[in-house]
Amino acid sequence: MPFDWEEYQAKKEVKIPEVVKQWEAKWKKFKQSMRWPVLFIILVILWLASGIYIVSPSQVGIVKRFGKMVRTTPPGPHYHLPYPIETVIKPQVTKVRRLEIGFRTISAGPPAQYRTIPEESLMLTGDENIVSVEFIVQYKVKDPVHYLFNVKDIPKTVKDAAEASMRETVGKTPIDEVLTIGKFRIQQETKALLQSILDNYQAGISIVAVQLQDVHPPQAVVKAFKDVASAKEDKSKFINEAQAYRNDILPQAKGKAAQIINEAMAYKETRIKRAEGEMQRFLSRLKAYKQAPKIIRSQVYLDTMEKILAQTREIIVPEKVEKIILPLNQPSQTLPSMEGRKTSLTTRGK
Score class of each variant (00 low, 15 high):
residue 47 W to G: 08
residue 341 R to Y: 15
residue 117 I to M: 13
residue 11 K to V: 06
residue 251 P to H: 08
residue 306 E to G: 11
residue 51 G to C: 11
residue 314 E to K: 10
residue 219 Q to G: 11
residue 267 Y to S: 02
residue 83 Y to G: 04
residue 283 L to W: 02
residue 42 I to N: 00
residue 158 V to A: 06
residue 6 E to F: 09
residue 131 V to P: 00
residue 39 L to N: 06
residue 308 I to S: 07
residue 78 H to R: 07
residue 100 E to G: 03
residue 75 P to H: 09
residue 67 G to E: 07
residue 186 I to W: 13
residue 153 D to R: 02
residue 235 K to I: 03
residue 286 L to S: 06
residue 269 E to P: 00
residue 265 M to Y: 06
residue 153 D to K: 04
residue 116 T to W: 09
residue 2 P to H: 12
residue 164 A to V: 05
residue 149 F to P: 01
residue 94 T to C: 01
residue 188 Q to I: 12
residue 14 V to C: 03
residue 151 V to F: 10
residue 123 M to T: 10
residue 266 A to N: 13
residue 51 G to L: 12
residue 40 F to P: 00
residue 9 Q to G: 03
residue 194 L to G: 02
residue 190 T to V: 13
residue 118 P to R: 08
residue 155 P to T: 03
residue 301 Y to Q: 15
residue 89 I to C: 00
residue 264 A to W: 01
residue 162 A to F: 05
residue 191 K to D: 06
residue 173 T to A: 06
residue 301 Y to T: 02
residue 266 A to P: 00
residue 346 T to H: 11
residue 81 L to T: 02
residue 190 T to P: 08
residue 2 P to G: 08
residue 234 D to T: 12
residue 280 Q to V: 14
residue 53 Y to K: 08
residue 87 T to A: 11
residue 247 N to T: 05
residue 50 S to N: 08
residue 29 K to R: 10
residue 137 V to E: 15
residue 134 E to F: 06
residue 10 A to C: 01
residue 171 G to Y: 00
residue 80 H to K: 15
residue 62 I to A: 03
residue 167 R to G: 02
residue 295 I to M: 06
residue 41 I to G: 06
residue 45 I to L: 14
residue 318 P to V: 05
residue 237 K to W: 13
residue 114 Y to C: 09
residue 84 P to S: 10
residue 264 A to Y: 06
residue 318 P to R: 06
residue 20 V to Y: 04
residue 250 L to R: 09
residue 312 T to F: 11
residue 157 T to H: 15
residue 346 T to R: 14
residue 222 V to Y: 09
residue 109 G to F: 01
residue 277 G to L: 11
residue 160 D to K: 14
residue 37 P to M: 00
residue 201 Y to W: 13
residue 189 E to A: 08
residue 348 R to W: 01
residue 54 I to P: 01
residue 295 I to W: 02
residue 88 V to L: 05
residue 243 Q to G: 12
residue 311 Q to A: 02
residue 61 G to D: 04
residue 320 K to F: 14
residue 216 H to D: 07
residue 134 E to N: 12
residue 93 V to W: 04
residue 316 I to F: 14
residue 300 V to A: 13
residue 119 E to M: 02
residue 319 E to C: 00
residue 137 V to C: 13
residue 76 G to V: 01
residue 162 A to P: 02
residue 169 T to A: 14
residue 287 K to P: 09
residue 307 K to E: 12
